[in-house]
Design a protein around this nucleic acid. Structure first.
Lengths: 313, 313
DNA sequence: GATTTTTAATAGGGTAAAGCTATTAATACG
DNA sequence: CGTATTAATAGCTTTACCCTATTAAAAATC
């Protein structure tokens, strides 16, 4: 069976056209080299080199084989460096899911940090809602998710955002004069909401809040993403509850007012399929030797950690 | 040092995800396979497979390495078949030189035969005159030449054409009435000739013939190739001596007449750098083990041989 | 929950082959 | 004709590849 050794030896001889010097280059002795080349020729059934006691020349088939052999060798080299870089996590792919709000808060900063540090990790981004992300993560369709807890799937998570919702309303709205608002004041307003499926949890929190204030909200429109909601607010269609960080996207004709009540909180967590033994229920104490998680995922999580540190300072 | 064996073994395990079955496929025993995979991982410094006593899974770097390893293996396969086909002469390159007359006589038929039989041998054709071909052949710039003997370079040759020259003259020419012509009748004609450099030997033969007839020809024009010469004959510029096979390219307004004298003969020989030991003067008796000539060249010469047989029958 | 089955890892040993040194044979060069 | 160069040959050592037998651990089954 032909081995890379044969190719390495042949390439050395074919390039130097000298068994002695080639052997020296290879760190072996000349008789060994002669023997191995002969073996290679026997294995192939082809004379690659013409040699007298004095001269070594490539035959025509030998010339062709040299080209191919060198390609195989160089591709082997790249395969080695590739797998090593992949093990470091500096090369690879990472598929990331995110919900709309992530795109307007934590995602850009984190991605920026990661891309700068690991430019050769190919990121494939996919916007999808929390439940979809859960199942995609479990099915190994996604490696990281930016989604809204709580979730019940057995996944690791790390909270990266928790901010209150604020009321967005037209600046000519009667309530715009007040610095804070109570839910009861909103009882007769038209609401612009995101579709329930997009964030079932937050949706029901909002509904509960309304119920506590004694009303069931009149829903003018269900849209997504949040900037569109604010656009509709500016258009006077209704008022909206949006996450606090949307205030940074200032838009003429729209003002934001905090709620007096303890508001629902928009939470974002980075989520991934933890290092489980292999799908079996992970008992906290006995973690056994685990499937090593993808190095690029590991690096991504480290970047997220660092980003959290950075933000706190 | 990583060997193809490692890649073969790894690919088998990575595809079956089962050491036992993979070992069976490979025709080795399972402990050996386990050992070799571990060796590979140590050599790379990368864990390629996650394995428990029960489950085998590819790690992320392992997945990438599998792709590369399979590519290396398949390229090795093609390298082997390529070199074997090259040794048979069914794959390769062949650079062929030819003179103008070859193109209108033997070359098309021979090339056709060869192409049909060896479609994967890439032919590169180059028109150049006899002396140029000689030096190109010696410099290994050409592998085969279709040229006009005699030559003095130490090259092998095989005559493939020997035909008389005939006189081409306008059909309204006074001499066109005669069925054969003598040189003396041409003494006062304007001659259309090929440039001396294109075929120095034939050129001087023609000159000698004129001298024997007691005149030095008046040269109206020196052009090449032969169809152009005949075109000029049709235009009434003069008469020309062309090889007999040009008669098959009939052209209105031109007639061909044989010469009474022993005409100069247009000879074409297939020429190649013979199997010399390596450039040293080849003593006929003691040929020693020779550099094997390019397989595609060998095949080409065989086709030429067959073509000669074919033509004789 | 004990037992059987499955499957990768470990242990120990034999052998093919990859490697070494020393020498030979053939060629080129002075 | 002698000397230098260089690939091939001969004989030997050692590496490592592969084998069989066994173990250990996890899953499946009764």
């Amino acid at each position: 069976m032909i081995e890379l050794r044969h190719l390495r030896y042949f390439a050395a001889v074919a390039q130097t056209l000298h068994f002695g010097r080639a052997a020296e280059q290879l760190g072996i002795t000349q008789p060994v080299l002669s023997d191995q080349i002969r073996r290679l020729e026997t294995l192939l059934g082809v004379q690659l080199l013409y040699r007298t006691k004095r001269v070594v020349l490539l035959t025509e088939p030998g010339r062709m084989f040299l080209t191919d052999a060198m390609r195989v060798l160089s591709q082997t080299e790249t395969a080695i460096t590739t797998v090593q870089r992949a093990a470091q996590g500096t090369l690879g792919q990472l598929s990331i899911g995110y919900t709309g709000p992530a795109l307007y808060t934590v995602l850009p900063e984190i991605l920026r940090l990661f891309r700068d540090r690991y430019p050769d990790v190919e990121l494939s981004l996919r916007e999808c809602c929390t439940p979809e992300q859960e199942s995609a993560l479990l099915a190994d369709d996604l490696q990281v998710g930016f989604l809204h807890p709580p979730i019940d799937a057995p996944l690791q998570q790390l909270e990266v955002l928790c901010e209150p919702m604020v009321v967005a309303l037209p600046d000519d709205h009667p309530l715009a004069n007040q610095s804070t608002l109570s839910m009861q004041q909103l009882a007769n307003e038209s609401f612009i909401l995101f579709p329930q499926a997009v964030g079932p949890n937050l949706y029901s929190q909002i509904m509960m809040l309304c119920a506590q204030a004694g009303f069931s909200p009149h829903i003018a429109q269900e849209v997504t993403p949040q900037p569109t909601m604010i656009g509709l607010v500016a258009a006077g269609i209704g008022i909206a509850l949006v996450s606090a960080s949307m205030q940074s996207i200032s838009r003429p004709g729209v003002v934001y007012r905090p709620l007096q009540e303890e508001t629902p909180l928009l939470k974002l967590a980075v989520t991934w399929k933890g290092a489980s033994s292999h799908g079996s229920s992970t008992k906290p104490g006995q973690q056994s030797k685990a499937m090593p998680e993808s190095p690029s995922l590991r690096n991504f999580l480290q970047v997220v950690d660092e980003w959290i540190q950075l933000r706190c300072s």
